[in-house]
């Protein structure tokens, strides 16, 4: 498979604290690449760094053959690298419709806005029903759908999903997980950061295990499911 995103020896810091200590990974084109790891392993930092939300400190990021290591977030979005952030961060005082349309702010997405909106409503009929409701009045699951929909409105090529099921009821988390393979079918590449190892292994093609800011293990999902070390550490015997 051709790589969508190539990350080499990436570092990231919050002030003096170095959180990522040289992470290298490859995101597969039109596939789900997962990053699993416990709380504080650096998953969100990695995602924020990839989305251009943290100042570049070291390492290289290549997207579709071009160096994007130092680009600002809006330039990355314009090129098709879009983060759906942890905690959803929807605009509570805007309607569902406004949340979605503002997602298509970059020039590439703007031209296609109406079509993309239809696609998003196909994925999430609930959002269509609640289109004139304020974002803040939605339930947690609906807000996650809205955050995903808003990300899709940016017309991404590579979608970075940071813990999309955090704090959601198991039934709704399951729904969100079921949507991800559908996104790949649309032609998207996905990097998924998750704590739920079981469900992640079920939908991911390739998995990286992040431990203390470095890649501790990696492999095809199928292989990792049988890996004794992963079983012990993350799956609970």
């Amino acid at each position: 498979m051709t790589p969508s995103l190539l990350v080499t020896d990436l570092t990231a810091c919050y002030g003096e604290v170095q959180v990522l200590k040289g992470v290298s990974l490859t995101a597969r084109s039109q596939g789900v690449t997962a990053v699993i790891g416990s709380n504080g392993a650096g998953k969100s930092t990695l995602m924020r760094r990839l989305a251009g939300l943290l100042p570049p400190t070291g390492g290289q990021i290549t997207f579709e053959g071009q160096d994007i290591s130092t680009l600002a977030s809006h330039d990355l979005v314009a090129r098709g690298v879009v983060l759906v952030p942890e905690g959803r961060l929807i605009f509570s005082d805007m309607t569902v419709f406004e949340n979605l349309t503002i997602g298509a702010v970059n020039p590439r997405a703007r031209a296609d806005r109406d079509n993309t909106l239809e696609t998003v409503f196909d994925f999430f009929p609930r959002l269509k029903e609640r289109r004139s409701q304020l974002g803040g009045t939605l339930s947690g699951g609906e807000q996650q759908m809205l955050a995903l929909g808003r990300g899709l409105m940016a017309n991404p090529k590579l979608l970075l999903l940071d813990e999309p099921t955090l704090g959601l009821a198991p039934g709704i988390a399951k729904q969100i997980f079921q949507i991800i393979p559908g996104l790949v079918k649309l032609g998207l590449s996905v990097i998924l950061a998750e704590q739920d190892v079981h469900k992640t292994l079920a939908i991911a093609d390739y998995v990286y295990v992040l431990e203390n800011g470095t890649i501790g293990a990696e492999g095809l999902s199928a292989d990792l499911q049988n890996d004794q070390r992963i079983k012990d550490a993350y799956l609970g015997a």
């Binding site: 759906v84 952030p85 605009f91 406004e98 503002i102 940016a154």
Partner: peptide, 18 residues
């Protein structure tokens, strides 16, 4: 609309490409 997104949530505004 971009400024309104900043007012609502600046990080979210950044992630959507404002």
């Amino acid at each position: 609309k971009g400024l309104a997104a900043v007012r609502e949530d600046e990080t979210a505004a950044e992630t959507i490409g404002v």
